[in-house]
Design a protein around this nucleic acid. Structure first.
Length: 270
DNA sequence: AAACCCCTCAACCGCCCTACA
DNA sequence: ATGTAGGGCGGTTGAGGGGTT
């Protein structure tokens, strides 16, 4: 019978977002929060876009808590570790990397990490050495496929001892970016103390929701009369949302200017 | 300088899951 | 129990920029 399109395809605009559209979307969310559904948002915000497109634009590009730039070495390593356990569950992986989106990680995996692993002689799907038949090819999550994997030994793992001939300019550049995110280091430390999949999974799922929410979007903050609230209706109390923090809400316009600068959006006209 | 190739990443598509009536 | 709507997710595409010939 087929599924109804999420929006009237004839009416919606597609393709790259213009500055004007970004401005409208940001303005709307800053003013109203995300009190309504995404489908209704474009109409209310004066956008000729599909609600889904607005959500993606916001979560993948406009969100103020996003980090920009390439993944650091630590982040990359964490992605590899998590991918070995979770497979292509990009959103789950992204939930462990604050400020990173699933789309970003997915792209980075496909364009950088995959190649790097292949270069190192490691199958990016199974995380097994390329010349070795994997124990279970259709289940990258199986513990047998990862427990003895060098990539899953964070304590002994370093770019030097993974493969001596694997050092690339990319490796070198990424290694200079370490230490910029202490939370990532903590994640790695935690991961390094986890010795089996069971422990890892219990660690991953135990606080997954909270972490996923924290990293994924500001959608947990509802704008009511210019004040932002989290899901518990407690005016924002999270340190990882500096721009949206309640003490800054009063200076909304100012913070938005900061925000535009952070994102290189200089021509918003504010 | 022009043509071609390759790479990156923003954006889209369509399926899946969940909540709700 | 069933149908529908809405949001989330993973896979894929294509424009544009940079590098190479």
């Amino acid at each position: 019978m087929g599924r109804q399109p999420c929006c009237d395809k004839l009416e919606v605009k597609k393709g790259p977002w213009t500055t004007e559209e970004d401005k409208k979307l940001i303005n709307f969310i800053l003013t109203n929060g995300q009190y309504c559904c995404w489908r209704a948002l474009p109409k209310l915000a004066g956008l000729r876009r599909c609600g889904k497109s607005c959500r993606l634009r916001w979560t993948n590009y406009l969100r103020p808590d996003l980090k920009r730039g390439l993944l650091s070495h630590d982040e990359e390593q964490l992605v590899i570790d998590l991918h070995a356990h979770l497979g292509n569950k990009w959103s789950k992986i992204a939930s462990r990397l604050p400020g990173r989106t699933d789309n970003e990680i997915k792209n980075h995996w496909n364009t950088h990490i995959k190649k790097k692993l292949v270069k190192m002689g490691i199958d990016p799907v199974t995380h097994q050495p390329l010349n070795q038949e994997p124990n279970n090819t259709d289940n990258p999550n199986s513990s047998s496929s990862t427990s003895d994997n060098i990539l899953m030994e964070p304590k002994s793992r370093s770019p030097k001892n993974v493969q001596t001939n694997s050092t690339t300019p990319e490796d070198e550049s990424s290694s200079t970016a370490t230490g910029q995110n202490s939370s990532i280091n903590n994640e790695n430390q935690l991961l390094s103390n986890i010795t089996n999949d069971e422990e890892l999974f219990s660690y991953l799922w135990s606080d997954d929701t909270a972490k996923a929410d924290a990293s994924r979007s500001c959608s947990n903050y509802y704008g009511v009369g210019g004040t932002l609230y989290n899901e518990d209706n407690i005016p924002g109390a999270r340190a990882d949302f500096p721009i949206w923090s309640p003490e800054r809400v009063g200076g909304k316009d100012l913070m938005f200017l900061d925000y535009c600068q952070d994102f290189g959006v200089h021509d918003f006209g504010f």
